[in-house]
């Protein structure tokens, strides 16, 4: 072998190697030049003279596994070469971080423990991109994290200005009334259509009008019965509404809409079927209820609702006015599911 050949081979053959011990106890031999790219390893070599033999291998931090070490060394091997352009480095980095999240986390952690700042920055940016725009549940799923926060510890959901039980109650009543009215209108139309095809003779009709078929008194009493029953039902409904609004009032003034009192729960459980009906878990769309309603009837309902609002909210005139004026456009805000049974059922 000529001297020139020797000169070419010699530096390659005499390339210094160092010994590194990973967290699992396995020892690897690595080119010193590449390993020195990591400040921690560099420090160990220069200050303590470690790594020169297998017996005094540099013990790497707990977070560096053999797999992550191989990745880190590949990164160092590429970036340590002086002649590369920024474009090449960028391209390499882009491909380098294309790995599953678990491995990316391990790599970030290992690079951090080896004080390899460029790689920490690179992987941190990648992880930040993964986290951004995700919900807590999604982040938990991605990183396999435990859901160990209690309900109290979790951040309170943000309350919208319209997201108040009293307003929601009013919205619901408003929408329900409209729906009932629409139903009544539809039934009336059906009856009118049926009346057009009346096959009875004139004599039959006259006798019906004169009331010869049955005792007129009896008819009257049944009518009165119906009236009384309706009145009773209305009173019952009003009392249950008042009860519910009282509970809500306590909650709003106490500034604790989410954490309901036991009292509220008890009232919720004991409230009768009418209350259940009023608070049925339904989202009313005010927009489509208005179609084809007689303006006079509509005005009557509006007056009724305004009256209800006055009784319910003597302390909120401006907000109620605003709500009633924009009642048609506004979609009702649903309450957060974190609250307890009463509000959850009512939402």
């Amino acid at each position: 072998m000529s001297e020139i050949d020797m000169a070419v081979i010699k530096p390659e053959m005499m390339k210094p190697y160092i010994w590194l011990e990973t967290s699992d106890g396995s020892i690897q031999q690595v080119e010193q030049e590449i390993a020195m790219y990591c400040p921690l390893i560099c420090q160990e070599i220069i200050q303590k003279g470690m790594g020169s033999s297998k017996s005094c291998a540099i013990c790497l931090p707990q977070r560096v596994s053999p797999v992550t070490l191989s990745l880190i060394l590949d990164y160092c091997r590429f970036h340590q070469v002086p002649g590369r352009s920024n474009k090449e480095r960028k391209s390499y980095d882009e491909k380098f971080i294309r790995m599953d999240t678990k491995r990316l986390c391990e790599l970030t952690s290992a690079a951090d423990s080896l004080q390899l700042k460029p790689l920490v920055d690179l992987t941190s940016r990648a992880l930040a991109r993964i986290i951004e725009g995700k919900s807590p549940e999604e982040i938990r799923e991605i990183f396999h994290l435990p859901d160990d926060l209690t309900e109290e510890e979790k951040l309170e959901p943000l309350k919208n200005t319209t997201d108040d039980p009293r307003i929601r109650l009013l919205n619901r009543l408003y929408a329900k009334k409209r729906k009932e009215l629409r139903e009544r209108e539809r039934l009336k139309n059906v009856e009118v259509e049926e009346e057009h095809v009346d096959e009875r003779s004139v004599d039959d009709l006259l006798s019906f009008i004169n009331g010869n078929d049955g005792d007129p008194k009896e008819v009257k009493t049944s009518k009165n019965k119906k009236k009384n029953r309706r009145k009773k039902e209305q009173q019952q409904k009003n009392s249950s509404l008042k009860e519910a609004s009282e509970v809500n009032k306590v909650e709003v003034n106490g500034q604790s809409i989410r954490h309901q009192s036991a009292e509220a729960d008890r009232i919720a459980e004991t409230s009768n079927s009418h209350t259940e009906d009023v608070f049925a878990h339904r989202e009313f769309d005010d927009g489509d209820i208005d179609d084809g309603i007689d303006p006079a009837l509509k005005e009557k309902i509006d007056r009724e609702v305004e009256d209800f609002a006055r009784r319910l909210n003597s302390d909120w005139p401006e907000r109620m006015q605003e709500l009633l004026s924009s009642g048609q456009e506004r979609k009702m805000m649903l309450f957060t599911p974190n609250g307890n049974s009463f509000l959850r059922r009512n939402a």
Binding site: Q62, E106, T108, R125, F143
Partner: peptide, 26 residues
């Protein structure tokens, strides 16, 4: 080699400084 040895299997064990560095980018 046991690949999992010494690795953070639960990412809740990540150092505070590192998590804060990541969150400083969002």
């Amino acid at each position: 080699v046991n690949i999992k040895a010494g690795v953070i299997t639960e990412w809740k064990d990540i150092p505070v400084e590192l998590l804060m560095q990541i969150l400083s980018l969002v």
